[in-house]
């Protein structure tokens, strides 16, 4: 057994807090951006305009079949060529995760939209609502409600995945733990601390989602 000194946890807390704040910001931005873009992608995939549906489908399949770390590296490499100037690792991470998660939220929203009975659309049309109106006021709210637990579960996965910004050195919680561990020469204690924090957050969120799942039954 090695010798441990967990007193390093005390002075590390301000750094951990800052790192955690970035991790949370990244998660929330990527979640909201991802759900919005993902919903648009889902509508595109379900649209009768074939080229549009194909394009959206290809984007989603591409994102889903390569490793996230590689996507992070790709964006970090390519964004400067598009914007014309280098961007920080944090900005790059936010863009990457939004674009990447959109593909996953897209598939969730697509099955959400398909879970709403066809009769609902007919009923909306019969009331004189247009296509867009029916989608916004009738279909999407039900799709969101049906898929809420799945969307939240995906968000927990996203929260964990943000740790991979390690690949480009963005300053998230794991990076903060890493830096403190190196500065105090206590890397083991700091890895344990970050594992505990991730576990505490993810486990309580997943319990909450389970509770929600019991209450929100899919309405068909």
């Amino acid at each position: 057994m090695g010798e441990f000194d967990f007193s390093v946890w005390g002075p590390s807390l301000p750094f951990i807090r800052d790192g955690l704040l970035f991790t949370l910001r990244l998660t929330l931005v990527a979640m909201s951006g991802g759900i919005v873009i993902g919903t648009l992608l889902a509508l595109a995939r379900l649209s009768p305009i074939v080229p549009l549906a194909r394009l959206a489908g290809a984007y989603v399949d591409l994102m889903r079949s390569i490793p996230l770390v590689l996507v992070i590296l790709w964006f970090f490499l390519v964004i400067p060529y598009i914007t014309g100037s280098p961007v920080g690792a944090e900005t790059s991470a936010i863009i990457t995760f939004t674009a990447f998660e959109a593909a996953f939220y897209c598939e969730i929203m697509r099955s959400g939209i398909q879970s709403v009975p066809r009769g609902q659309l007919n009923a909306a049309h019969a009331l004189g609502l247009g296509r867009a109106q029916s989608m916004i006021h009738v279909i999407l709210p039900q799709a969101l409600r049906n898929m809420l637990p799945v969307l939240l579960t995906q968000t927990i996965v996203l929260f964990q995945d943000t740790s991979l910004v390690y690949a480009i050195g963005a300053k998230d919680m794991l990076k903060a733990a890493d830096v403190v561990g190196k500065n105090y020469n206590r890397p083991v204690e700091m890895i344990v601390l970050s594992a505990l924090i991730y576990f505490a957050i993810c486990f309580s969120l997943s319990l909450a989602v389970k509770q929600l799942q019991k209450r929100v039954a899919i309405i068909r």
Binding site: Q160, I191, F203
Partner: peptide
Amino acid sequence: RNVPLLVQ
């Protein structure tokens, strides 16, 4: 399931 793979 509740700890990121990288941390694991």
